[in-house]
């Protein structure tokens, strides 16, 4: 058994697609219509095109909204992406207008920061410190 996809519940798939590709720098892997408006929409890291995909999944279920709002209120990220240089990514993304709820923080083996994906989620970026 292998992990091939992990999902993020997004308020709007088109907005999410733009954010995850144009800002975060992922590339589209699958974009398949599912029903009237929903899509099986996945993105992947250009550094690892055959690696785990991120499914930008519609958050239409009524339980999704209060759950997501509660996480954002407490600053809790829904998932975490690895980068080589958190501070460099922080500067790059902030330059693109991305909002951070936690600026880079070094804590021994890891450095992390938390950003808003504009689709109702907070995302952590992390680097392993040598």
């Amino acid at each position: 058994m292998r992990v091939y996809v992990t999902s993020v519940l997004v308020d709007d798939q088109e907005t999410a697609h733009r954010f995850y590709t144009e800002k975060l720098g992922f590339v589209t892997k699958n974009d398949i219509p599912m029903g009237d408006t929903d899509r099986w929409l996945t993105v992947v890291s250009p550094e690892d095109p055959d690696g785990c995909e991120v499914l930008l999944e519609p958050s239409g279920h009524p339980a999704a909204k209060p759950w997501k709002e509660a996480l954002v209120n407490d600053g809790i990220p829904i998932t975490s992406f690895q980068v080589d240089d958190v501070r460099g990514e922080f500067e790059r993304l902030r330059g693109l207008g991305v909002r951070f709820t936690q600026e880079p923080l070094s804590m021994g083996p890891v450095t992390t920061a938390v950003l808003d994906d504009t689709c109702g989620n907070l995302i952590q970026i992390m680097q392993m410190n040598a």
Binding site: D74, G75, M107
Partner: peptide, 17 residues
Amino acid sequence: DRDGQTLFEICTRLTMK
């Protein structure tokens, strides 16, 4: 050390640091 933190950041600092 840094003013203006989410609950998540405070929890992270207490756990990790």
